[in-house]
Design a protein around this nucleic acid. Structure first.
Lengths: 213, 213
DNA sequence: GGCTATTTTGAACGCTGTTCATGAAGCGCC
DNA sequence: GGCGCTTCATGAACAGCGTTCAAAATAGCC
């Protein structure tokens, strides 16, 4: 009859996700969660060490889902036979933008989340999820033949990711006007355009080219 | 003898900046400010409407200083006779990175700061400062002749800014290892390299090129 | 001095995250 | 059923937060 421990945890996380999405990190309150889940405040702390762990768990779910939609977008292109690198990157970026738009409140919370209390040593599951996202982008870059070694391609993937990420967050920190959505997309189109063109013309090694002059 | 109202406000802001830098937004507490400034809690609220206004004011000071260092970096290059666009952009980015590194705690607070309580209509002083930063970048792009009209160049400036911004924040959200500083700089070098190369080869109009095919 | 306007004050309010003694509920065993 | 033991849910209680506001102190003026 009563919910399992794990079921209740998921219920709590679902509630937490809605709260985060509606009002950001400040809206994640232990008493609200308890009330909506039909349990007591103390029980929340029985399932999770503190609210930070709840927030962290919600973020991981979001990152996980983002990765899944990214892979799905890739699969779609594969099915359609799209091989053009620029198009594929744009499709990835579009998936990212859609995802962020679908989570207007909780995505800033994902970004602003400061995990300074984690155990010091080594990368955690959080970083693992981010790496998985990088790998997807790196896979797309692999398709285009830019004469990049593995290290340089991975660097390019991270750079591209960070840049798109910056465009999206810069745009959404401002106002969520309808014009902002256009602005974000224009920036992404320009970025991907110059990025691909730049890679084609060896811009990734601009430093080495300039030096011997 | 006693401090002027404005002097006290500046003292409060100086204290607030230190607090933000040391412990982020959570470390900005009314009672701490009052204690360190030698006044009572209520007096803080006499100078500022609430803590958000204090935070906002600190952020504005930081953005102001960032703009000043950017202009100073530009002037340095001018004096040295550096005209190469790539070098100038890299110098700008370097100034930005140094600034962020100099404010490890308060810079995330600037970015995460959500100004949703401001009066709805129109851009405020906050946006004006950000626009000033954009203009600096746009000025650098103007030097290079990429065949861009004003709108497109402004878009490219915003894109470049957002991308660098994304690289820096992505890098710093992770861990502040010494390796991270290198990673950030490698990403910036690659970004600027492909960006300039891409602009030189008309990558900013990749969409128009691809369509008629 | 006295009178008024202004400013400073800190106790008090309502909210927060978090804890923990208390009690209820399950469970195996006789 | 009765009993001991463990496990878990509970919500009052605590410390801390931002913010307010009646009262006290101060400043300004005649």
């Amino acid at each position: 009859m009563a919910l399992d421990k794990e079921e209740m945890s998921e219920k709590v996380l679902a509630i937490a996700e809605v709260l985060l999405n509606e009002g950001g990190a400040d809206n994640l309150k232990a008493r609200t969660i308890a009330e909506q889940a039909g349990i007591s405040v103390g029980s929340v702390y029985n399932l999770f060490a503190d609210l930070d762990e709840v927030h962290r768990a919600v973020n991981m779910r979001l990152l996980d889902r983002l990765g899944a939609t990214g892979i799905a977008a890739m699969a779609d292109l594969e099915r359609q036979g799209v091989t053009d690198v620029r198009h594929r990157i744009l499709a990835m970026a579009a998936a990212y933008v859609r995802f962020v738009e679908a989570h207007p409140g909780s995505w800033p919370a994902v970004l602003a989340f400061n995990r300074r209390r984690a155990t010091r040593p080594g990368p955690d599951a959080y970083d693992a999820l981010l790496d998985a996202l990088f790998d997807i982008v790196a896979g797309v870059l692999k398709a285009g033949d830019f004469g990049l070694d593995d290290d340089r391609r991975a660097l390019a993937a991270r750079t591209l990711w960070s840049s798109v990420h910056g465009i999206v967050t810069s745009g959404y920190v401002a106002n969520s006007n309808s014009r902002q959505a256009e602005e974000i997309w224009h920036q992404i189109e320009l970025l991907v355009g110059v990025f691909v063109k730049g890679l084609e013309h060896g811009g990734a090694f601009a430093h080495a080219e300039t030096k011997p002059a």
